[in-house]
């Protein structure tokens, strides 16, 4: 009897020549290396600002305050912060308990651990009772080269199946800073992805009057040939790809859709009905159960049938390695987007 049901493939792998080797970017979820303006810790700073006038706000983390920018809140308001240790189940159960007692808890960990380890506790203690717990999670999708243990490639799919849950995939520092008070005001549970550290600020560059609105998709860039519907940092990637494609005469619209659930069906349908455009969704998430499938369902069940394509991560456990290599390999880099769209138009 031997154990070989999962594919062991540790034959010597191809060894990259020294000068071509790329180091793994460890826990660096910051995408700032790309020449954007950045803001430091938009989540932590926005939460402190809000909490000054909202005494019911409390913060909790499961040994990842420093890695979710919640340490800013912990340092500013130590008596309103609970360090729960590395125990994600009690993190969310205790958040539920605090919410029952009238508080608005912001609970943080990594996206993988909220969606996988703590799921049942979120489902029953929080979502089923529609409690106002805000679960805010770093390392969304493919933002670490550590391999599947840290890559939250299916978090949106997991939470989309959960009734009552509001789900946010913010693009940048502008989205994150602006969403914090909105989430606190929403009387129900929220799961939000998070970029932390030095976070690029992009949306206001394209749209100076941009304002995050719960449940609303917003057109960031108009275009005649392709309609991209995007969330999370894929919106900034799509905007960069659109500039590149414009040089080749392909005019790309980018509709930023940070609220994954409830989906802004009205805007998506209205835009998709403006005929003639190829519709492409782009998400930092598996193509199973995320934004792409949500949009596809919306279109099809409403009889809107443009040519439709999805950009996202494959239905696989992903590799470990350097983020730029992985983003390129899985087609979610700017190059990857350009390449795919050129193949479709």
């Amino acid at each position: 009897m031997t154990h070989n049901s999962h594919a062991r493939r540790y034959e010597p792998r191809k060894v990259t020549p020294k000068e071509d080797r790329v180091a793994t970017s460890a826990m660096i979820a910051s995408l700032a290396a790309e020449g954007y303006d950045t803001e430091a810790a938009p989540f932590g700073n926005a939460l402190v600002e809000l909490a000054k006038t909202r005494p019911e706000i409390v913060g909790l983390s499961a040994d990842l305050a420093k890695y979710t920018d919640l340490h800013i809140f912990a340092n500013a308001m130590p008596d309103r912060f609970y360090q729960m240790g590395m125990a994600e189940q009690v993190l969310v159960s205790a958040a539920a308990g605090l919410a029952r007692e009238g508080f608005i808890p912001f609970a943080t960990t990594y996206a993988v651990f909220a969606s996988r380890r703590a799921y049942d506790f979120i489902a029953m203690a929080i979502a089923e009772e529609n409690l106002p717990v805000k679960i805010v999670c770093a390392l969304p999708g493919l933002t670490t080269g550590y391999g599947p243990s840290h890559q939250a490639t299916e978090d949106l799919a997991i939470f989309r199946g959960l009734p009552n849950m509001t789900i946010i995939d913010p693009c940048d520092a502008v989205d994150i800073r602006q969403m914090v008070p909105v989430l606190a005001d929403h009387n129900g549970p929220v799961y939000s992805r998070l970029l932390r550290g030095k976070v690029p600020a992009v949306l206001n560059r394209y749209k100076p009057d941009y304002q995050f609105t719960l449940g609303k998709a917003q057109m960031i860039r108009e275009g005649r040939d392709v309609l991209m519907i995007t969330s999370g940092f894929m919106t900034m990637r799509a905007l960069d790809a659109a500039e590149r494609l414009a040089k080749d005469g392909v005019d790309v619209a980018v509709l930023h859709n940070p609220t994954i659930k409830p989906l802004d069906r009205e805007t998506i349908l209205a835009e998709a009905r403006l005929g003639g455009r190829l519709v492409v969704t782009a998400e930092n998430h598996t193509v199973v159960g995320g934004l792409g499938e949500a949009v596809a369902t919306t279109l099809l069940t409403n009889g809107v049938t443009p040519t439709f394509r999805m950009i996202g991560l494959p239905d696989e456990f992903l590799e470990a390695g350097a983020l730029p290599t992985l983003h390129d390999m899985y087609g979610i880099s700017v190059d990857g987007i350009v390449r795919q769209i050129k193949g479709w138009v």
């Binding site: 540790y10 080797r21 180091a23 793994t24 080269g145 243990s149 840290h150 390695g321």
Partner: peptide, 17 residues
């Protein structure tokens, strides 16, 4: 090759590597 692309030694341990 530790932690490099295509290495058998990723930063976080993986049985298949």
């Amino acid at each position: 090759t530790y932690g490099m692309d295509d290495s058998r030694m990723p930063m976080s341990g993986m049985a298949s590597y």
